[in-house]
């Protein structure tokens, strides 16, 4: 379980996060929803210690992050984190060199699934294919937790569908996934849990199926209530 406890973050005088708390379970897809600039990316960066939080605590399976944690949690930012001049093959080799959790078989499987070519340079890939290569590098790690920042934004519809397929496959099964998005429509029935953020706090945290079952409301219904109300 990933526990975010009362986390705050200031950029200069601006309070981006003002006491954010939520949990994300293993085996579930948790979705952080909020308009742009609400601090979703900052939260993900905070979880993997890419930016320090001003206060609060973040625990992964009850422990604070150490260098070993990077073998069990993978963060896939919204832009690929490899040198543009690298070929897909070289990027994969880089990951294999540094991560014990790199699963080469799965990487090859993803390569076929996304129809990527090993010899292509990252700089020569289309936007959609860059997003897929980026996803490949994260998904091929045998980690318990996956964090994805806006995996669906700014790419063509076919790439989106292909990426959405990942969420219904064994590639994320049994892992804990946190994704951020400002556009819920396409993935509404893919997610287990929603954390609605606004003005640096958590407005509402709920399980999607339970919300439908008990209150008969879709995620969008709840968002409408929360943001208009």
């Amino acid at each position: 379980m990933i526990e975010v406890k009362n986390v705050t973050k200031k950029f200069g005088r601006k309070n981006v996060l003002q006491g954010v708390s939520f949990t994300a379970n293993k085996g579930e897809i948790t979705c952080l929803i909020g308009v742009n600039g609400v601090g979703k990316t900052t939260i993900l960066n905070g979880i993997v210690n890419l930016t320090p939080m001003t206060s609060g605590e973040i625990l992964i399976d009850g422990e604070k992050l150490t260098k070993e944690t990077y073998e069990k949690i993978a963060f896939i930012p919204d832009a690929i984190t490899m040198l543009p001049r690298m070929r897909v093959r070289e990027a994969m080799q880089f990951m294999q060199d540094f991560y014990d959790s790199w699963n080469n078989e799965r990487a090859e499987e993803l390569l076929r699934f996304f129809k990527l070519k090993k010899e292509d340079r990252i700089s020569s890939l289309s936007k959609g294919n860059v997003a897929k290569a980026n996803l490949l590098l994260g998904l091929a790690l045998d980690v318990d937790y996956l964090l994805m920042d806006e995996p669906f934004s700014g790419i063509d519809i076919f790439s989106r569908e292909q990426i959405a397929d990942v969420f219904t496959s064994h590639l994320v099964e049994e892992r804990g996934v946190i994704i951020t998005t400002h556009e819920i429509n396409d993935i509404e029935h893919l997610i287990d849990k929603v954390v609605l953020l606004d003005d640096g706090i958590v407005f509402k945290e709920f399980a999607t199926e339970e919300m439908r079952e008990v209150e008969g409301k879709s995620v969008v219904d709840v968002m409408r209530e929360v943001y208009r109300g």
Binding site: K67, P77, A79, T81, M82, I122
Partner: peptide
Amino acid sequence: LGKNTFIYRLLMLPTAR
């Protein structure tokens, strides 16, 4: 620098920073 910020990867390597 740039869009492909490699520092993300470097800081997330499972090794002492």
